[in-house]
Amino acid sequence: MNKRDKIFISVILIVYFVAWLISLKYLPPIDEAFSTLGHRWVVSIGGFAFNPATLINAVIFFLIILWIALSVRDMKLVPDRKQSIIEWLFDTFYEMVEDTVPDPRFVRSTFVIAMTVFMFVWVSNMLGSFPGIVFTGWENGKLTEIGLFTDTWQAPTADLNTNLTYALMVFVISHAFAIKAKGFKAWLKGWFEPNPIMMPMNLIGELAKPISHSLRLFGNIAGGAILTFIFSYMVKYFLLPVFLWGFFGLFVGTIQALVFSILVIAYISAQLT
């Protein structure tokens, strides 16, 4: 670290400290800060109730992924650093799918599904406990205020609807692949596998897969966001939020995104064997 870096880091720290001192004045009292915790902004159109914050953030994350994809669009024969990272990621995933899925006809489509899910969930998890635009909802779903850098992003994966959509999609896709691969009769016979008495167990187990699949991601990300919010308030937003983002966003987010997409591969391949 040379002298210029040291000066740069000290200036940033001083600016951070002064900004923190100024922001102390505008911090809401504890009742007001925690009264909207966990309440979402809900809009219902024609009987469909949904959370617009999830939609808006999802569109923003799709644009981020699109921007990354456009920046590495022209593939060169000798890759530079950015391209080689992405090539390594895709290669790793393709090998994993190839090792797991037994039927070579479905390797490519399984890879496409798992990779898409992984990229979206990863980006959304990483920015999940990062300060950004916040839509604060009240108990009956009315939007009370739009804050800038007051709380963490409501990641789309911190909303159960997103996760349940992906998990149900994987459930339907895995059974469609199974019917296509084995034929309808063999698929129907698979429900009565060890003996016909175990049919209810198999049925309940299959139906429970999307529930546990989606709840695991939801619990980790939503719990991390709430913990980040509470701890950040307790230290008056002094320095700790960075480390909390590092833990919940980078570490837990990466592991959960990886686990989610590996379970996608595992559930699809379990139906194909």
Partner: peptide
């Protein structure tokens, strides 16, 4: 990294089955 998934697998599977 993905092996760490095994730790919570059993508990959540049992709970999800009971819930369904």
């Amino acid at each position: 990294f993905a092996k760490l998934n095994l730790i919570t697998a059993f508990g959540t599977t049992v709970l999800a089955n009971i819930a369904v």
